[in-house]
Amino acid sequence: MFTCKQVSKSLQQKDYKKLPLVKRMFLQLHVKLCVFCGKFNRQVMENQDICCHYRKHEEEILEYTHPDSVLNDEHKTIIKEEIAKNLKSDLEG
């Protein structure tokens, strides 16, 4: 079994889902049963789940939550010019 500190340490280092299955099971068991750290570390895991799901679906989520966050025309023009300049200097160099 793990101590509370080991559980916290482990969660601090890594997403619990990335742990080897056996370790993950012991961790989940500890959190389920421990009256001291249970609530705290359970919420740490919950938060890791939320962030993990977000990372996986980020492109889609940002597309529908921020449809108006786009490069404005001025930025687009400047960046395109910079790219053209760099392509040209690549050609010459």
Binding site: T3, C4, K5, S8, K9, Q12, F36, C37, K39, F40, N41, Q43, E46, D49, I50, H53, I61, Y64, T65
Partner: peptide, 23 residues
């Protein structure tokens, strides 16, 4: 001693995992 910032964090009043499909 434990790496725990609080033994009694505020509870969620809904289960966030159940909302993952909700835009």
């Amino acid at each position: 001693y434990s790496g725990i910032a609080t033994t009694n964090p505020d509870p969620w009043e809904f289960n966030p995992r159940k909302q993952f499909d909700n835009k």
